[in-house]
Write a protein that binds this DNA or RNA. Structure first.
Length: 478
RNA sequence: GCAGCUGUAGCUCAGUUGGUUAGAGCGCUGGUUUGUGGAACCAGAUGUCGGUGGUUCGAGUCCACCCAGCUGUACCA
């Protein structure tokens, strides 16, 4: 490479991002709300490391000499290590490792960065912050119900209204039983079928029909291969899809489908039990929707998904497919994989960065930050005086700073303007010699300027600033 | 990964059927004001026209390949 022309790139790796203060303040606020709620619900705080052995968090661990795709991995001397892609798998590992000493049910929450080697999109990164709350070691569906209520309370604490999101609920036993009933045993066909069902929202009934049959062409003309099911199987699945939005009335419909299949019947019973718990909590913001499947292989029972009901846009203002902002479900066999002990468990996750993306767009949360008062530097020789002013302000915990650049007063004012400071303190020869300070209110000045037409006018207008004795400085600013 | 679209200044973009020294707005720097931001006026800087190769007397413009981004789709344990 030519040394003369080489310039390092200021680009970031695809899917990674810098996060400005505005976003971090909102994130901090959400986190503090979440912690309060978790403590109210009685969950314990836990942290696990970023890296795990790949075999501990992988989907199907055995005999692969390469970690599955979707994770960032590297090889140690002996073993593959991976950055965690969620907080559930590490939790299962943790629970297995500490099985004897943990209380059960073990209620734990965790906030942590996770990494996924997947295609990024708006509000969707390869490195992002996730929040998880889980119950380890209980088969009681009260836990599942409470998690749905919890996720709802969290979203409301983030500034969302009841009608701006909903919690969709289903049960893996419904789809599992449906596959049994239709005698779809081929593993690949099973997984294509489940994914097709899950896509109802995005591709519509017709799209699902294609995906179950020969395949589907998307908007760009790309072709997705289908499950190639029999006509009667497709028909039955489509009528299953039509039971969307279960309620008292159409429980009858799904019960018809459940006839002769115990798995579906169990699923229905579980959903009805959860409904009972919801009513005890007076919780109504949920929809039973048997078409929710969720990708995760490990779910075994109830599954939940939180979706926004408003559209989300990209930078160009185009509405985009945003997907869910949180969800979860019951995973009764995950801990068992490590220690061969029965340990039914259930949990939820919320993608905080995606939530923040949507919230910022909706202007849902307002954080305000006191910007520093800027003490302008007219000349080095006045530094002792400036230090006196600075100390007085900082002693009162007022955010303040002495201008730390090298430019003239005009640029110092521009600097203050750009940062959004409210006040600037101007002290030159006149003030210092008489122990005075001039305080300029930038916001007032800004307002005045709106009505000023020519230059000489604004130069004369000095309502935005006043000169007072140093002793009165604090009275003026507090 | 697959498909479609896009790639010109820090940002948003214009650039005629290929034709000389590649443009605008915003922003930036300086000045009108050696002690004053935000309005106004004046002046100025900035580009490997995503990359490589090709066609041509001549390419930002046409062709091929590559790269990157966007959107959809797949995957998302």
């Amino acid at each position: 490479m030519n040394k003369k022309t080489f310039k390092p790139s200021s680009d970031l790796p695809l899917g990674f991002t810098d996060r400005p203060e505005e976003e971090l303040l909102i994130r901090d606020l959400l986190i503090s709300n979440i912690k309060k709620i978790m403590s109210k619900y009685g969950f314990q705080y836990l942290e696990t490391p970023s890296f795990e052995y790949t075999e501990s968090i992988g989907k199907f661990l055995p005999d692969k000499d390469r970690p599955s795709e979707g994770v960032f991995s590297f090889q140690d001397e002996k073993k593959w290590l991976s950055l965690r892609y969620d907080l559930t798998a590490p939790l299962a590992r943790y629970a297995a490792k500490n099985f004897d000493s943990l209380p059960r049910p073990f209620k734990r929450f965790q906030l942590g960065t996770v990494w996924r080697n997947e295609k990024p999109g708006p509000g969707r990164f390869r490195e992002f912050l996730q929040f998880d709350a889980d119950y380890i070691g209980t088969s009681n569906l009260f836990a599942d119900s409470e998690l749905c209520i919890l996720i709802s309370e969290i979203l409301i604490s983030c500034g969302l209204e009841q009608n701006e999101f909903n919690i969709k609920i289903s049960n893996r036993k419904l789809s599992k039983g449906l596959l049994e009933k239709l005698n779809i045993v081929d593993e690949q066909k099973q997984s294509i079928t489940l994914r097709a069902i899950d896509k109802l929202d995005r591709v519509g009934t017709e799209g699902v029909q294609y995906l179950l049959g020969k395949g589907r062409k998307d908007k760009s003309g790309d072709f997705t291969k289908g499950a190639e099911l029999e006509e009667y199987q497709i028909k039955e699945i489509i009528s299953f899809l039509n039971i969307k939005n279960l309620s008292e009335n159409n429980y009858e419909n799904i019960k018809k489908i459940a006839e002769g299949n115990q798995t579906i019947q169990e699923g229905i019973a579980e959903m009805q039990l959860m409904e009972k718990y919801f009513s005890l909590f007076n919780f109504t913001n949920y929809i039973f929707d048997p078409t929710i499947v969720r990708g995760l292989e490990y779910y075994t029972g109830p599954i939940f998904e939180a979706n926004l009901t408003f559209g989300v846009q990209n930078k160009k203002g185009e509405e985009i497919e945003f997907g869910s902002i949180g969800g979860g479900g019951r995973y009764d066999d995950l801990v068992k994989r490590f220690n061969n002990q029965e340990c039914p468990s259930t949990g939820i996750s919320v993608g905080l960065d995606r939530l923040i993306y949507a919230i910022i767009q909706k202007n849902k949360v307002k954080t305000q930050k006191k910007l520093p008062i800027l003490i302008c530097v007219f000349d080095e020789k006045f530094m002792t005086f400036y230090m006196k002013v600075l100390k007085a302000l900082r002693d009162k915990n007022i955010s303040s700073e002495i201008y730390s650049g090298t430019s003239n007063i005009k640029s110092q004012l521009k600097y203050a303007d750009k940062r959004g400071c409210d006040y600037v303190i101007l002290c030159g020869e006149d003030e210092v010699s008489k122990n005075l300070v001039t305080i300029k209110n930038l916001n007032v000045g800004k307002k005045i300027s709106e009505n000023i037409k020519d230059r000489s006018e604004w130069k004369q207008s000095e309502e935005s600033q006043k000169t007072i004795p140093f002793d009165q400085l604090l009275n003026e600013l507090i």
